[in-house]
Nucleic acid binder design. Sequence first.
DNA 1: GTCTATATCGGGATAGAC
DNA 2: GTCTATCCCGATATAGAC
Lengths: 219, 219
Amino acid sequence: MKTRERILVVARELFNEQGEHNVAASDIALAMDISPGNLYYHFKGKDAIHIALFSVFQRELVGLLGTPLTQPSLFIDDEDSPVIRSWFFLTVVLEKMLEYRYLYDNLSDLMHRFPEIDRGCRRLGHLKFAACETLIAELLANSNASPERLDSLVNTMAMTLTFWLPWNQMTHNADQSDVIVHKGVLQLLSNCAPYMGDEQHSFYAECEALYREMVVAVR
Amino acid sequence: MKTRERILVVARELFNEQGEHNVAASDIALAMDISPGNLYYHFKGKDAIHIALFSVFQRELVGLLGTPLTQPSLFIDDEDSPVIRSWFFLTVVLEKMLEYRYLYDNLSDLMHRFPEIDRGCRRLGHLKFAACETLIAELLANSNASPERLDSLVNTMAMTLTFWLPWNQMTHNADQSDVIVHKGVLQLLSNCAPYMGDEQHSFYAECEALYREMVVAVR
DNA sequence: GTCTATATCGGGATAGAC
DNA sequence: GTCTATCCCGATATAGAC
């Protein structure tokens, strides 16, 4: 792997582990066994690394959010139930966010410091909203919930999607970084539960079953 | 007002306006027209200011969260409906948080840097949970929602309470800092709506009525 | 591309006069 | 209590050799 690539990988790891602000450019160089000067040859400082890192993340997440549940894929069959499809979709999104969780630990800060990140996050926010809307439309197709309620539901889901990782970090100090995604999906979907029609119970059963299956599989 | 007091007030304002990390100790001194040396006479650096500021906030918020809806007060009558009481309670809590919103913009960061803030926020988190639980117990007294659902509802509410301010800041760049509290209360209560019994509609009506009333009153 | 050495700079912190 | 002046340090950034 080229040095430029490695810098991005190592920087992301350090940011996630130690918090963005605790990592100096020289720390990254040190962790890679290269000199600070060399690092500055590839990126003109930590800022440039941030921009590059975020642009990769943005591209990847836009790709995921852009095709929510619409097309079948390798993993998702068109015949699968909306619950399964939603479950899978949310899992994939949260896992991607977990890879770049340092971003969500310091969202306001980074958005404030970097206009690019600010614009990017707002764009991602809109996409999150849209994705949740189509997800809900599919999941609650024959629900009689009022539009206002659905609005607030979408809002809750988009917000949960954004802050689930930091929220868990602050409530459970333990590092259950693998179950955290599945717990998040359950939390997200359980918000939809009360609005579902008759399949309500079967939904919840399916959810819980999948949840336990995954948690067990991890351990 | 004594200098020591003024430092805390000005620091809080600057933190809220410009973000905690963008404010140096010398900035605070500058904004107050005192010398950096003088500031250091009162507080041994920015860290000490943070600790002092947080301890005030913690004391205040613990006071609010500690007596959720239980005792009648100047503003809350024992005969008032649970909806009104919940509404008022959430408003007061969110308004206090708004006064110290810089905290919630950089939660992970500050918790990471200051063990005191870390411990305090976890404690506040528990109190938030407990408060939401009693609120829900009162609000959904005769609901038949399953315990799992109620758990996830409490979780959603506590999380919303924690991240509502930063979430709004990142979605709506406009500074509608006065309505933000009322919008938050509506968002919080609308999560409970589907679990309410027959009074569901009357609840929503009451909520919306109050909401509009308050928004209009502000403008 | 990579290194070492060094310059720069901002913010934290202290000493001592008033 | 408050000021001025100064020191110190860590992190950023550059220069120039290899």
